[in-house]
Structures are given as C-alpha cells and as structure tokens.
Design a protein around this nucleic acid. Structure first.
Lengths: 237, 237
DNA sequence: AAGTGGTCTAGACCACCGT
DNA sequence: CGGTGGTCTAGACCACTTC
C-alpha cells in the first residue's frame, strides 16, 4: 500500500517531466492539488516536500511553487539510494561481476557492520558501467543473517531491487560518507585511468527499518564521469 | 520568530548531546513530548524529522525513536550549509583572506549565477583552517545587487552569519555538486599537499527564498582532513 | 492487547507576495 | 487587499512491535 502523499508526488513529478507546467513554470496551488486529488492540503504539502528534496521545485511563501529549470541532469542525486539505477534510467547501466563469495566477519568488518565476529557475510565486487563507460567499482558486504540469500544471477543485476521486491527487505536509512583519495593500480586499470589519479569515494552503511546494518559498501567512482548532487534546504537547520 | 517545531528540535537535540537518554538509548514517545512541550503531536513529529536528517536518531514504527550511537563525529554534514562552522563548533575554525575584490560578471559567470553580463560581483578567496590545519580553499562570487555590501572585515569572519543576521538576507536553498579532481600546484601549496594529489571539490549555488542566486562558490577540500556525511532516508523515494 | 510510530483529515491563523 | 505558502491543532485510524 503506497501512501497517498507518495502517489501524489509521483503524479506531479511525471507532470513536471512531461512539461505540463511549461507555460507558467510553476505548479498549481496547494489547494488546487488538494481538490484535484481529493486529499487534504497537508498531504499535498508532504508530496511537494519530496519534489523539493529531489530538486525539481522550490517554494516561495506567498507566491507559489516554482519549477527549477537548471535542474541539472547527469548528476547522481544523493537523496535516493540506488543513484545510478534511478538517475540514469534513460541510459544503459551494466554490471560486470568481478568477485562473489561468502566469508565470515573479522574484527574490523564486525565493527563496521555492527555484528559479531564470525557472522556469515556475502562479499560482492562489481564494476559498473553507464553507457558503456566504466563508472564505479563497488565493493559490498551483506550480512547473510539479514539478507538470507544471494547468488551470482542476482548480483549481476540490481541487488537492491531483488532485496526490496523479492526478499521484501524493509530498507530504512543509510549513512553515506564521501571523500576523495588516490586510485590504486588495480582500481585505475578497471576504470581506465592511471594509478594515483583522484577517486571520488562513497562509503555506505545501509540499515533496515529496525536499525540493523545489512549492507556495508564502498563505491570508488570515476572522477571524470561522476558528480554527486545534494539539494539543501535552509529550513530547520 | 522561531517556529515551535524548530524550538522543540533544538531542545531534544541538546538533551541528546547532554546524554539525557543514555540509559534507554531512545527518545521519549511523541505523545510524551507533545505533553511536555504543550504542542501537538504533528509539531513533535516535525521536530524529530529534523533530528533524523541530522543523523541523531532513527525511527522504528511501533517501537520508538532510537539514538544513533555510531553518529560519527568529524564529518561535514551535508544537511546544513555552513558545515565547517556548525560541525566543528568545538574546534578552532580560522580563515585566511587570500583575495577580495569587485568585478563584473563575464559570460560564463553570468550563466552560472543566473544574472546579466556586467552585473557587479564580490569575489572572495579564502583559505580555511580547522585546529590550525588547512582544510579547504573557498572561492566565492556574490551578486552585489543582492548582497549589497561586503568588506574585508566581514569576509575574514563568517560571511553567512553576517548576511543572515545583519543583512537579514532570506537564504532559501542550495545545490551542491560534489566531485573529485587533481590539485593544481597553487592549491597544493596552500593546502600543504602535492600537485596532482586528489581534491574533494564542492560547487555551491545558493539561492534566496525567492530563487535568485546570490552566491556561487567552489570549495576545494583537503582530501585527508575532510569527509562529507549524508544521511539518507528511504521514505518517499 | 497495549504501546508507538505512520498516514490523513479539516480547519484555523499567520507571514509574505503581488496588485 | 486577495492569493498563497508556513505553522499549528485535535483527533481519527492504520501498521507494526512488543509482550
């Protein structure tokens, strides 16, 4: 059951993409959406809040909700996990499986994943391509006690789609730590760059809704092909 | 006039920092806060939402709001602008003014700032230190028609505090684009690194509440001292 | 079954923008 | 001034966790 505010957000989002508001460059008023979709104004507001965070629109008190024309394409929006699959849905995303195995958590991994030493772990290493260009090297550890099952066929495709749709895993929230570093020789070869070139590195710690860490991963991005986007709102900070 | 939900958020935040909830490791229930602060439950929920985005807590339906113990310190949280001043409030933040002048927007700058060619612009270049260590090189362009006034004394301190508190500028939202790149020789010298070392680069486009761009800036961060943090929530994506 | 967070409503009033 | 977004309330009902 998808909540109403998410449904409304999806409808308005698709209207924006279809250039429905091209003439005025602004959305309808909150009251108009409330009437149109037969929901309360607060529900409309929650829907618009999603679109603000996705960078589609901005709100001006007393005036309206305006569409952001310079809503830059080609960036990986940090608002959503699964950036590549979502942000580049119109481009060709491919994975090359480099390594897939089971192991048990050593002290360091247990610390990072908030589990006991010896916990069974799936290890996945993939090279991701966008439109045929190497995009990032992704090294993931999944807690087998929470993820239950993975195999080669699954990890060659979208792991998260499988976990969410088939395993019905309740994915809750994630920490993402972004830094820059040197590329190792091995990483450089995979990405088609040189050793010691810069790398854009993202460390992810992904939790279930109950707070348990089920995925700890690191993505090493091609510094020329990948830029991340964060839309910040000054409200409440 | 600060809204109630921001006041409540600030109170709970300070309680968390003071380890008030250390025994249970969770917040009070929403109803308890509603009664405690004499506000509605929705106001409490908006307050807690802020704390979720700041990475202090996570919510579990049917169970409660839990404090995140691994709430890692030392990262620049992308949730707020003014990351350095806020996240390192317990550390010594200093600025060295490298350059300050007025200029007029050329075609490229006018494009980036959404203004006309020839618009008067303040240019500020600063080297920022945290605890005496070079932290980032910040190159900023401020639209003089919106910012009205800046001088050397102001830009040596916190520009944003001045704009918000003294100029009463209504800062609304910002795009931040994060990438990695090589350090130039000049940048490397300023940061105490070597030419062609990696750099963590953040391009900011900051808008007033009415959508006008008043600040366009680039921060080149020391890749060993700076890590950015983004807390992602799966709701509504 | 009781407790607690998630969704939703209907309506009030305020703050700000534009005419 | 009317229009529109921002804050806030009181209450209802649902979904999930916990016992």
């Amino acid at each position: 059951m998808v909540p109403k505010y998410q449904q409304v957000a999806a409808q308005i989002e698709s209207d924006i993409i279809d250039h429905v508001y091209q003439e005025t460059n602004k959305l309808l008023t909150e009251d108009e959406y409330a009437k149109k979709y037969q929901v309360s104004r607060n529900t409309v507001r929650k829907a618009i809040e999603i679109l603000v965070n996705k960078g589609y629109v901005y709100q001006v008190q007393g005036s309206g909700v305006f569409i952001r024309t310079h809503h830059n394409k080609g960036y990986v929006n940090l608002e959503k996990l699964q950036g590549v699959t979502n942000d580049f849905s119109d481009r060709r995303v491919e994975n090359k499986l480099l390594e897939f195995k089971q192991l048990t958590a050593d002290e360091n991994l247990a610390e990072n994943m908030g589990c006991k030493v010896g916990t069974p772990i799936y290890f996945v290493k993939r090279l991701r391509y966008v439109d045929g260009n190497p995009f990032s090297i992704e090294t993931s550890y999944f807690n087998k006690e929470l993820v239950i099952y993975l195999d080669e066929n699954i990890v060659k495709k979208s792991i998260y789609n499988y976990l969410r749709n088939d395993q019905k895993l309740a994915i809750g929230f994630a920490d993402r730590i972004i830094s820059a570093d040197f590329l190792s020789k091995e990483q450089a070869e995979l990405l088609g760059l040189k050793e010691n070139d810069p790398a854009l590195v993202v460390d992810n710690t992904v939790c279930l809704t109950n707070g348990a860490i089920f995925d700890y991963s690191q993505s090493v991005h091609h510094f020329q092909h990948v830029k991340l986007l964060k839309v910040s709102n000054m409200k409440g900070s």
